[in-house]
């Protein structure tokens, strides 16, 4: 009986200690205030050592900025870079809050657009959340620099950002063709969603020397549209960045589309187009080559 009481008391003491040692009880003076890409202020540790990313693109940005070693937790969807895959998991798009808490993070990197509810839960634990939602290449470079600054890898991040910008300007210098073909880029067939103004994929089309047929924006996201809109706008080039579920030939009017008759339907790896990370530059290169083969052939010669 006494043994049991001792056990209970010990458990209570351990519980209390764990509670007091929680993240809300960090000594002051080791944090600083920074501003994220959208100008929101975030209080982050001066030297974050245990970073958890709860959005795949943020994981990629962290590793690109040189902070890979500080990343102690990722999601089951984080597949790039390869080193990220072996890190402990804190859930899918549903956050496993206990797993996260168990990793005792001092900073969580996330997205405001994709994970607002999860972010609230994390803040409820007393862990600061830094949100990154790049909308174009310039934003991606800024995100890299910001992460470098926050995680103490300023030089590595700067190099990554500069390399990205160099890559983009190289494409821009190559694509100097006066005619911009109209482009339709589809990221899902059910529902049909397309690249629209205000998002990275739209900028990719523009920089690759194309003109997006979808000119109406959707709050900076992929825009749901009807297939008849695509038929009506009859793009010169169709770009598919998804593993289309149902066969394209079954779509009404598919054979009559200009792009289909001219053989200008391209399928690309979605991971080069869907995420606002340095890998978007690969997508840009592939698309530019597809849109303007003549420019690239000329250079090759």
């Amino acid at each position: 009986m006494i043994k049991m009481w001792i056990a209970v008391a010990a458990a209570a003491a351990i519980g209390a200690a764990a509670f007091l040692a929680g993240p809300s009880f960090r000594p002051a003076g080791t944090t600083r205030e920074i501003r994220d890409l959208d100008g929101r202020s975030v209080v982050v540790p001066v030297h974050p050592r245990r970073i958890v990313s709860i959005v795949p693109s943020c994981t990629e940005l962290l590793f690109a900025a040189g902070a890979g070693d500080q990343v102690v937790g990722v999601t089951t969807f984080c597949e790039y870079p390869a080193e990220a895959v072996s890190r402990p998991k804190v859930g899918s798009i549903f956050l496993h809050i206990e797993a996260l808490r168990a990793l005792d993070p001092d900073l969580v990197v996330s997205s405001h657009d994709l994970a607002a509810p999860s972010n609230e839960k994390v803040r409820g634990l007393g862990v600061p959340v830094l949100c990154l939602d790049p909308k174009n290449f310039a934003d991606i470079a800024s995100a890299l620099r910001l992460l470098g600054e926050v995680t103490g890898h300023r030089e590595t991040a700067e190099r990554a950002a500069a390399a990205l910008q160099k890559r983009i300007s190289k494409i821009a210098s190559r694509v100097r063709c006066p005619r911009r073909p109209t482009v339709y880029m589809e990221a899902s067939s059910q529902p049909i969603i397309a690249a629209a103004p205000g998002m990275t994929a739209d900028e990719v089309i523009r920089l690759a020397g194309g003109a997006n047929v979808i000119t109406e924006s959707h709050a900076g996201k992929w825009r749901p549209i009807s297939w008849e809109t695509v038929l009506a706008r009859d793009p010169e080039v169709i770009v598919l960045v998804h593993e289309y579920g149902s066969s394209l030939e079954a779509r009404a009017g598919w054979d009559r589309l200009n792009a289909v008759r001219e053989g200008r339907v391209h399928r690309f790896d979605k991971s080069h187009f869907l995420y606002p990370t340095p890998r978007l530059a690969i997508g840009l290169e592939r698309l530019a080559e597809a849109l303007h083969p003549e420019c690239f052939d000329a250079k090759a010669r």
Partner: peptide, 15 residues
């Protein structure tokens, strides 16, 4: 539905 003015008759028929 979508604006079909200026669309080829073939595609219009299709829609």
């Amino acid at each position: 539905g979508a604006d079909l003015s200026g669309v080829s008759p073939e595609i219009r028929k299709e829609v």
